[in-house]
């Protein structure tokens, strides 16, 4: 009973929050509801008994959206609404159609899922992180390693793009220039 209450509560809140994310014109509202929705998805994992995945969802998305906030802070005045400029009607049509299709698939999923058997049913007597680790390092070892390599490539690319003048400190240099200017003015 409690599980059902929790599931419906979390589902309604998640859908509502993500709707706010898409529909609002305010950057702050949109990102805050995105973060809150991601945290509530962790709640769904907890009701399913997947504690470890729930906690990972929490930690990963809290950090990721925090970085997104940093970008919003640099790009927008967050206390004002963003002026949207939507002229592409066919895009809206396409997205609306895809959403409708997705709804049909979601609604029909329970009918299909009765025929699906779990290939790797959870083993008895292992805790949550151990079960995740066993599957990750046996069945899904190759995708796991490929993901690791991809992240490494992205990291190196990021360092190369951003790190050209990493040895020079911008703040101290500017301070020196300003100080020299002040000194020169004093001499005059």
């Amino acid at each position: 009973m409690y599980e059902q209450i929790a599931f419906y509560l979390f589902s309604v809140l998640i859908i509502g929050l993500f709707l706010v994310t898409v529909l609002t014109k305010n950057v702050l509202y949109s990102m805050t509801s995105l973060a809150a929705g991601m945290v509530l998805i962790a709640g769904i994992f907890f009701t399913l008994g997947a504690d470890f995945l729930g906690v990972v969802q929490l930690i990963v998305y809290v950090g990721a959206i925090m970085a997104l906030y940093a970008f919003a802070m640099m790009f927008f005045d967050v206390t004002k609404d963003v002026k949207e400029n939507n002229t592409n009607g066919s895009l809206i049509f396409l997205l609306g159609g895809l959403t409708a299709l997705m709804f049909v698939i979601i609604m029909s999923a329970p009918i299909m899922s009765e025929n699906i058997q779990a290939l790797y049913p959870p083993m008895a007597g292992v805790t949550n992180p151990q079960a995740v680790g066993m599957v990750l390092f046996t069945k899904y070892l190759v995708p796991f390693e490929v993901a690791a390599v991809m992240l490494l490539v992205a990291m190196i690319a990021g360092i190369i793009l951003a790190g050209k003048k990493m040895d020079q400190s911008l703040t101290t240099e500017d301070d020196v220039i300003v100080e020299i200017d002040i000194l020169e003015e004093d001499e005059k």
């Binding site: 805050t32 907890f46 929490l58 930690i59 809290v62 925090m66 992180p129």
Partner: peptide, 18 residues
Amino acid sequence: DINVGVLFILGMMAAGLY
């Protein structure tokens, strides 16, 4: 008493910085 207590605590404290 969840069996991933340490991670849960750290995750929640991280969410607190919001």
